[in-house]
Design a protein around this nucleic acid. Structure first.
Length: 346
DNA sequence: AATGAACCCAACCGCAATACC
DNA sequence: TGGTATTGCGGTTGGGTTCAT
């Protein structure tokens, strides 16, 4: 039957918005609000389609948008939420005040996704990638060491991967998130209902067990009730300030060798150090980055520049971003805690 | 300094869901 | 109840910027 286009294609401008167009849109919405996007451009005197106006408003001009770099907590939140919600960018954005789905999606694709890949974590499943972990060597030595129990060896292998993921997930839960209503520790298919998440602006998870939704990422499958703090899907409440305690308690740097696989490369660096770096960047950012009021009125390319170039502007070599990336890459490397010997399927 | 590659992000496209008549 | 309009969303693209050589 064919669907009518969202707007007349002829005579309508496309591409980057000019400051004048932005101002027209802002003025109109401030006066009349945004009811009907289809008629809005005409009423506002814009040669744009309603869709374009809506996008420009929701992704850029909206006054409550927080621009600038993502904080460490926000990044943690995105990873955590993505592990539960998947590519539901709008749902993720609803729980990150001031961030748009588009912004989060871009950040995921350009930063977090690459970071996870570098760490050997599948950004889709949030589980370690078997190809990176050299499955064959693990399998081989595992079977060699446990010749009487091949199934058990494989179980251990799966446990390793789940714990890798869990270790990582615990790392991602050290901010202000808490998972509530998690009482049944043996429930390995705990799932989160998007519809039952707390309203936006309140970063809390509410877990339910609705069978209509896909299972929580598999990392939770290997949780032990006794290791609540280090399991994805368990109850979390990790104020950032308590990270050091948690870290020293659970993640002391150590060399672990299991079934021939040397995990000595998987040590976590100091969170405090990372935090310091992050804060310095933010201070730096506040100094150099233009105010939201200023950037709001700029045309499209300008704020893009303001957000993406302040590091290189500051030190001339643009390495801060890379250093941070690089550091984060190490930062998110997880170690294997001593719980490796626990039956992964408890 | 030049230039090609890589990165980044605003904007677009098209489909799905919802609202409305 | 069915058809159409509108809105929302996720994937993709285009072009500006930065980096590497």
């Amino acid at each position: 039957m064919g669907r009518t286009p969202c707007c007349e294609k002829e005579g309508l401008k496309k591409g980057p918005w000019t400051p004048e167009e932005d101002q027209k849109l802002i003025d109109y919405i401030q006066k009349h609000g945004y009811g009907n996007w289809r008629t809005l451009p005409k009423n506002a005197g814009l040669q744009r389609c309603g869709k374009s106006c809506r996008l420009r408003w929701t992704n850029y001009l909206r006054p409550d948008i927080k621009r600038g770099r993502f904080s460490f907590e926000e990044e943690e939140a995105i990873i955590q939420l993505h592990s539960i919600l998947g590519n539901k960018w709008s749902a993720i954005a609803a729980r990150l005040p001031g961030r748009t789905d588009n912004e989060i999606k871009n950040y995921w694709n350009t930063h977090i996704r690459k970071k996870l890949l570098r760490m050997g974590i599948d950004p889709v499943t949030h589980n370690p990638r078997l190809d990176v972990l050299d499955l064959s060597s693990i399998l081989g030595s595992s079977f060699y060491n446990n010749p009487n129990s091949q199934i058990n060896s494989f179980s251990r292998l799966i446990g390793i991967h789940n714990r890798l993921a869990n270790s990582f997930m615990s790392f991602n839960n050290m901010s202000h998130f808490s998972m509530q209503n998690v009482e049944n520790h043996e429930q390995s298919n705990m799932i989160i209902s998007q519809s039952q998440l707390l309203p936006p602006q309140q970063p809390h998870y509410q877990i339910d067990q609705s069978p209509a939704l896909p299972p929580l990422h598999e990392a939770s499958a290997g949780c032990s009730p006794s290791t609540t703090t280090s399991c994805g899907g368990e109850a979390y409440l990790f104020p950032s300030s308590n990270f050091s305690d948690f870290y020293s308690q659970n993640c002391q740097q150590q060399t672990q060798e299991l079934n021939g696989f040397d995990y000595s490369e998987c040590a976590l660096p100091s969170y405090d150090f990372y935090k310091q770096e992050q804060e310095q960047e933010q201070v730096h950012q506040q100094v150099i980055e233009p105010s939201p009021e200023t950037s709001t009125l700029n045309s499209s390319p300008t704020p893009l520049n303001s957000n993406s170039t302040y590091f290189s502007t500051a030190n001339g070599n643009g390495t801060d971003q890379d250093e941070k990336e690089s550091y984060c890459s190490d930062f998110f490397k997880f170690e294997i805690p001593d719980l490796l010997d626990v039956n992964p399927f408890v």
